[in-house]
Amino acid sequence: MKAKKATAASARKSAAAGIASIEELMAYAYALELEAAERYAEFADAMELHNNREVSGLFRKLARIEQRHAEQVLDEMGWTSPPETPHGGYKWEGFEAPETGDVTELHYLMQPYHALQIALHNEKRAHVFYGNLVKQASNAKVRKAAMEMEQEEAEHVRLIEEWIKRTPKPDADWSIDPDPPALAD
């Protein structure tokens, strides 16, 4: 079976248009950050199990950063517990929240540079998510708050780009394993 058409989840209805209040927007923001944190923690566990400690540590750090962002949402709203999940769950444009890393992007030999590329991609998607909300929100307060969050995500993109500049680029043969998992010829 070969992948032919690229229709995918992007065809799903955007969540952004339906957000009608600041509370709802912040519930989405909280879920977005929390899901990202949980996924990075899973990534860190997977890499740790394969003894790739450097990348595991980096994912752990990213998980902590996203967890902090989620907590900031609670603080800003004065919420003492996480907001209720809306009936039927959150409706994202793709299959998962825009800042959540794609599981299949991992590789057991990956290097910090690759992990940061994943993080960059996720921050850019979050930026687009809020950007779409700015364009589509019918409520002025939601639009204004979304604009602030779009700017925040732009700042996160910039920070990750800086981080990438300080991180060594992998050699072209980074994925070559002298003792590969496949049966040798």
Binding site: A46, M47, L49, H50, N52, V103, E105, H107, P181
Partner: peptide
């Protein structure tokens, strides 16, 4: 228990 699957395996999800 933490899954011992290859990092990136679809089964995690």
């Amino acid at each position: 228990y933490k899954p011992i699957w290859c990092p990136g395996c679809g089964d995690f999800s």
